[in-house]
């Protein structure tokens, strides 16, 4: 139930980011200056944490999506759906533990 709610919430959040992200990337057609100025706002610490949240949402949505596919197509999927949710949570923690230090160094490290 909660994995279903989280799948919807993360899906909507990712969708709205996608709309904005296509618009900001479209500025490469305006001028290099316009693009660099807007992409520069992605490099401040607040946006750095926002990117961490975005990646967290994407990784959950991806892993839980695979779980949904297994529940639907794998004969034993429905039986193991609860176990698979914990596998999703475990893999999510693992992947985020790998990504977060990299992202924090990029965000707060001195370049």
């Amino acid at each position: 139930m909660w994995s279903w709610v989280a799948h919807r919430v993360t899906g909507v959040a990712i969708f709205f980011f996608l709309l904005v992200h296509v618009l900001d990337t479209a500025l490469v057609r305006v001028s290099p200056q316009a693009y660099n100025e807007v992409i520069g706002t992605y490099k401040n610490p607040v946006m750095g944490l926002g990117e961490a949240g975005l990646v967290a949402a994407i990784v959950f949505h991806a892993l839980n999506g695979l779980r949904i596919i297994l529940v639907d197509f794998w004969a034993k999927g429905p039986k193991y759906q609860r176990v698979m949710l914990w596998v999703v949570v475990g893999l999510w923690v693992l992947l985020m533990a790998g990504f977060l230090p990299v992202q924090l160094v990029h965000t707060f490290g001195s370049h």
Binding site: P32, Y42, K43, G48, E51, Q103
Partner: peptide, 13 residues
């Protein structure tokens, strides 16, 4: 986001 400096490396070039 991960290789070569992440988002800081992104610009028009």
């Amino acid at each position: 986001l991960i290789t070569d400096g992440g988002v800081h490396a992104i610009d028009f070039g």
